[in-house]
């Protein structure tokens, strides 16, 4: 819930991003990253997409909210950032 001073800004091309880095990133930034990070949240029935608090909560924090292992969530997100070779956002 902390408004982290050290939270990283949106980095768009996130290929090679490490899971540990993702834990402290805000969810909205992770959702905006290249790669299908949205699916990682939706397939776990997490309601982060469209949540008004997505810009204020880190990945570690939402893992706690949904009772999900933070390191597994971060690993899946890191894997997803490398799943698409092209930026599919318009």
């Amino acid at each position: 819930m902390r408004w982290r001073k050290d939270a990283r800004p949106c980095i768009g091309d996130a290929s090679g991003v490490k899971p540990a880095d993702l834990l402290d990133m805000f969810v909205s930034d992770v959702l905006a990253m290249r790669g299908d990070t949205v699916r990682v949240f939706t397939e776990r029935r997490m309601q982060c997409v469209g949540c008004v608090f997505a810009p204020f909560e880190t990945v570690a924090e939402v893992a706690r909210v949904y009772g999900i292992d933070p390191s597994q969530l971060a690993s899946s997100l890191a894997a997803a950032t490398g799943t698409l070779s092209q930026d599919t956002r318009q």
Partner: peptide, 17 residues
């Protein structure tokens, strides 16, 4: 209008913490 369930879950989690 914004969906309330997810933000409320976050607030409840913070209350618990």
């Amino acid at each position: 209008h914004v969906p309330l369930p997810a933000p409320i879950m976050v607030m409840e989690d913070e209350h618990e913490y």
